[in-house]
Design a protein around this nucleic acid. Structure first.
Lengths: 196, 196
DNA sequence: GGTATTTACCGACCATAAGTCGGTTTATAG
DNA sequence: CTATAAACCGACTTATGGTCGGTAAATACC
């Protein structure tokens, strides 16, 4: 006797929860829609009633994971005071979070493969990338780095960070690798810093 | 009555040629093995006689395209004299080449999706990435940039370049975008340059 | 030069998994 | 209370990667 809106919400959430677990653990390809349906205790038809395709399910999961991740990073970055320092701290956190387990699988591995690099970058940029331009703009306003077109530089830095995160994810000694890349990233940022 | 080695070579080449065309035009997923077999004028069984899986075919195509691309980039980079300038020039060429058409499809889109980001980075690094560390080492030896761990910095820069290339590939005005990113990259490199 | 063996090739067949669809149950409108 | 719509079911269709038994061509061996 639950209202339809509630039924809908409950089912959708069950599907998403199951999908997130499965995609994170086994990856997108190894997870079948039957698996997802079973995991959510519904029939496949129900899944397709709420999501048009398997990709759509993944996109929803991706979005959820991204939100969680970005919240976590924000918390870490806000602790710093200098804009450039915040960039470094946030980056470090991004490395750590994506370096292992389900998050990395979903965000870094399957993300671009499933959504296509284009859409992935778009969504990723929406979540994380948005921070980079804003941080750069702030840094320029504060006179910390030279004024220049923001978007291209932001894109380059974002690419650098993402690549490093992936490299991290493939290493056994994650913490160590993360520290290495964080240091290198810091050196890049510091190189940009204007010296009077 | 051709020798077996010749038959083998001819068939393999026909398959690779057809696959390269199809993968480049339609992408990996949209291309079926039947398409490839038809395109090469052989039966599917023949394709599977020479390549274990569809991925194996793609890997071979990927390798071929990478070789061609790297040769082209080398030509452009060798024209420059300063190591840092060569890096910038090579990068610019990389942008341009991957920005459009089959090459971009194979190298930047399907590459990571099909081979997995790990293996892709590995192969990509073998072809292109190898240049980055070498260039950085040379730059350090020449006293152009500060001495520091090479691998992490190289990885960051490679990631930046790749990201930019992909961004380029998604733009209508490729030439313009390429120029923008090249300028931003140059500014990054120049920031690293030591001032006495 | 004839026979045995190995290699290249064929294409019908199989297995799997995404997506469909007609039917059923449950909620809402009037 | 009835009619409509939404949620849900699960057998079925379809598309495609991969297999396999068989045939033709080349090579090895006597």
């Amino acid at each position: 006797m639950a209202k339809q809106a509630e039924r809908r919400a409950a089912t959708t959430e069950a599907i998403l929860t199951a999908a997130r677990r499965l995609f994170g653990m086994q990856g997108f390809v190894a997870t079948t829609m039957d698996d997802v349906a079973d995991g959510a205790n519904v029939a496949k038809g129900a899944v397709y009633h709420h999501f048009k395709t398997k990709e759509a399910v993944f996109a929803a999961v991706f979005d959820q994971v991204s939100r969680d991740l970005v919240a976590e990073i924000d918390r870490a970055a806000r602790a710093e005071k200098d804009v450039l320092a915040a960039m470094v701290a946030g980056t470090q956190h991004y490395f750590a979070a994506t370096a292992k387990g389900p998050t990395g699988q979903i965000i870094l591995r399957d993300g671009p493969a499933v959504l296509g690099w284009e859409r992935w970058r778009e969504i990723d940029a929406q979540h994380f990338g948005g921070k980079m331009p804003r941080a750069l703009a702030a840094a320029m306003d504060a006179g910390l780095i030279a004024r220049q077109p923001i978007e291209p530089l932001a894109r380059l830095l974002l690419g650098a960070v993402t690549e490093a995160a992936v490299a991290c994810a493939g290493r056994a000694d994650i913490a160590r690798a993360g520290a290495e890349y964080a240091r290198a990233f810091k050196s890049l940022i510091e190189a940009l810093r204007l010296r009077p």
